[in-house]
């Protein structure tokens, strides 16, 4: 008779203690600082190796460095790069059309690794949204314009 009663009282105390322990934890959390980053006002620092929206490096003429070799097109796993190459009067190859469909792109960065002249690179911008899918296709001009300052 006495033992089950004692055990019951013991159980009661451990239960109440556990409940109070939970309450203490949440109270401590209540008085701690929130870890939220208030996004549009404050932005998170991205890693130096962050793979964001692509951009083109320029050559000494101020045009794209791309020589239209087609390696990025070949390696792209989601096949989102469209390239039409032409030959200029001085015999250089030049991308007449170079489009990255950024909706299809998985931002793996293989194009940047494959590029023999380091023309295509992945920037650090991740705020890239639009209401129309067509506007998310990056053409040559936009890729050149995407180049961040002072890189």
């Amino acid at each position: 008779m006495a033992m089950p009663l004692l055990r019951g009282i013991g159980l009661l105390f451990t239960t109440v203690f556990a409940l109070l322990k939970g309450l203490r934890l949440t109270l401590a959390m209540f008085f701690s600082r929130p870890i939220t980053i208030q996004y549009p006002e404050r932005k998170r620092e991205v890693s130096p190796r962050w793979r964001g929206v692509h951009y083109f490096e320029r050559n000494e003429r101020g045009d794209t460095r791309c020589v239209a070799c087609g390696l990025c097109v070949a390696i792209c796993p989601s096949q989102c790069i469209r390239l039409v190459a032409v030959e200029l009067d001085n015999g250089e190859r030049y991308p007449e059309i170079y489009e990255i469909n950024s909706v299809r792109c998985i931002y793996c960065g293989m194009c940047a690794e494959a590029c023999p002249v380091n023309a295509i690179k992945l920037g650090r911008n991740y705020e890239f949204v639009d209401y129309r899918r067509e506007n998310l296709v990056l053409d040559k001009e936009r890729l050149l314009a995407n180049r961040p300052e002072g890189v």
């Binding site: 949440t26 959390m29 209540f30 008085f31 701690s32 600082r33 929130p34 870890i35 939220t36």
Partner: peptide, 10 residues
């Protein structure tokens, strides 16, 4: 608000 602070958010 209080539930938020308990969950370490605003």
């Amino acid at each position: 608000k209080i539930l938020g602070r308990i969950q370490v958010r605003y």
